[in-house]
Every structure is written in C-alpha cells, then in structure tokens.
Amino acid sequence: MSKLEKLQSEKKSGSKAKILLEVKNLKKYFPIKAGVFKRTVGWVRAVDDVSFFIRKGETLGLVGESGCGKTTTGRTILRLIEPTAGSVHYGGNDLLAMSRGKMNKYRSKLQMIFQDPYGSLDPRMRVRDIIAEGLRSAHVGNKKERYEMVEQYMEKVGLSKLYVNRFAHEFSGGQRQRVGIARALIMNPELIVCDEAVSALDVSIQAQVLNLLDDLQKEFNLTYLFIAHDLNVVKHISDRIVVMYLGKIVEIASKHELFINPLHPYTKALLSANPIPDPTIERKDRIILQGDVPSPANPPKGCRFHPRCWLAGPQCSQEEPPLIEVKPDHYVACHFWKNMEDQN
C-alpha cells in the first residue's frame, strides 16, 4: 500500500495510529559566556518551548532554516544534549527525567542517523566495528554473533558483506550513509531521528538513500523524525511536517495540507522561495522575504517572525501567538491565520 493510500485510508476510518513519542514544552538554552571569569551574559534560545508528537509508523518531517533549532530539538530528544526544560514521553516514561543509566537502556529503541557521512564514522575503525558498536555497548551476543549480524544488516542496507573489513574512507558518500543507517538499524529501533541524512549527498545518490529509508520503514515498521532544510526532500518522505522558525514551531500539518494551505506566513514564504525544477512555470506571486533571520540570542518580542512578516499588525510585536489546532491535525502559531486561509 502506498503512503498516500495509507494516509487516505486512515483518514476515512478516522482511526489514528497511536502516539509513539510526545515532546512537551521542550527548551534548550545555551549560555553565552564572556569575560575572564566566564560569566553568563545571556542565553541563546535554540529551542524555546516546543511541543509536538510523533505517531507510530509515520515520518514526521522537521524543516526550518539554519539556526531554527531543528538539530538541537532532535539531539535533545535523544538526550545527546541535556535539555533546559520540558519532557519527552516515550512508552509511558519521561526520557528527560530518567537517570543516565536508565536512559542508556532506551537508547537502542531511539536511534539517529547523522548528516555528515564523513564526520560521523570513526576514521580509525573498520566498518564491522562501526556497525557493531551499539551491540557491543549493549552487550548483545559475543563477537562472532555480532559480526554475523553486521553482515546481515549490511546486506539489508545494500552494502556487500565483502566490505566488512574496510575503513570508512574507502567508501563513497552514499555508501557511508548506508553504514550509518546499518549502525542505527542493527539496534532494532522503533524511532530513528534522521538529521539531514541526505543533505550532503549528490542528487542521484540522495534518491537511492531516500528509497532505502522508505523500504526499511516498511520492512521494520520504523518511525522517522526526519530533520532537513530541503523542503522537497521533506515533502517526499514525510507524512506530516513541522515547520520551525527561530526556536519555535510555527506550523504543523500533514504534508498535503501544508503545501496546499499553509497558514503561517513563514511557511508560505518558505514554500514560495523553493525553486521548482521546471522552467515553464512562471512564479508571479513569489514572496521574497526581506532581511535576515534575527539572532536567537536576542529574538524579537512577540511573534518572532513579525519583523519580516508582511501581515504583521501591532498585536504581533506585543503578543506571542500560541500554537493552536485550527483544524484537525493542523496547528499554527499566527494571529492572522484566518487571513492566510482566505488568501489561499
């Protein structure tokens, strides 16, 4: 069954898959230190009060431009960075409230694929040891059993098992990313956070890896949190999409709803800026945003997007719009979402 059909059948029956992971009021502030005594002079609000959930078996896309906090969100959920506040509920437990030891038991269920296929593999380890690292840390099987599993999973991700003794630098970018996928997959995870997993790859290779991720999702019933800046990639792979701007979520919707009926001006600008590979399409209504993204160390008061927004009224610079569900499964944080809908 294709993804589209799956989604439609879900809509018809009205039954929604159960929620696998729920993030509530997540915050991560990084201190800015200055002076001889390293005094904290301010805070970079990388992630500022973010709440969303991921359903079992779906792919949730997380898009935004650099500095919007999408990577920090992904890393904080897995506690690779300690959060400032908030909770992440998974299987009836709050991951963020656990001791480190207990958290390590959950690690195998929550895995990550990294952006940089060069930097994310230890250059001094052989591929079989890279892929087996998680098993070894979790004390699964003996060495021989682990290596057998490695070979099995290498074939699953489309790598010849003849390569087990190679070093990372002997592979191409696409193959390295497959190693990274095998390393996560071998832990038998429920959720994989893909942090810009295909952005460093050439376009023809990118398609191979996206297809692989798609196949693996079906075979292993995986749930993905897919973090990327490329709207087209996110649209292709996701079921629902979260849009972030300057540490805040501005909109959450199913991908079709988001692309057809964006209710936040930033989402609309983002979609409009996205180049379409078709020279015959004339884009007259193109929105070109003015200025740069402000610094997360000193975000604008009120709605963080208001200095660049063409709809902004006096209210926007005073009052921060909450993220509200304006339609089933469509959340937006804008005072003027109704005007947006009329425009669409």
């Binding site: 294709s2 589209l4 996206l210 692309f259 979609l271 379409i276």
Partner: peptide
C-alpha cells in the same frame, strides 16, 4: 530529484 510540484511514491535513482 523530489519535486515540489509532482508527487511520486518512489523516486527513481
């Protein structure tokens, strides 16, 4: 390439 204007279930590569 995934395209914003065309929906495919699977990309060719």
């Amino acid at each position: 390439i995934p395209r914003p204007d065309v929906e495919v279930d699977r990309l060719d590569s």
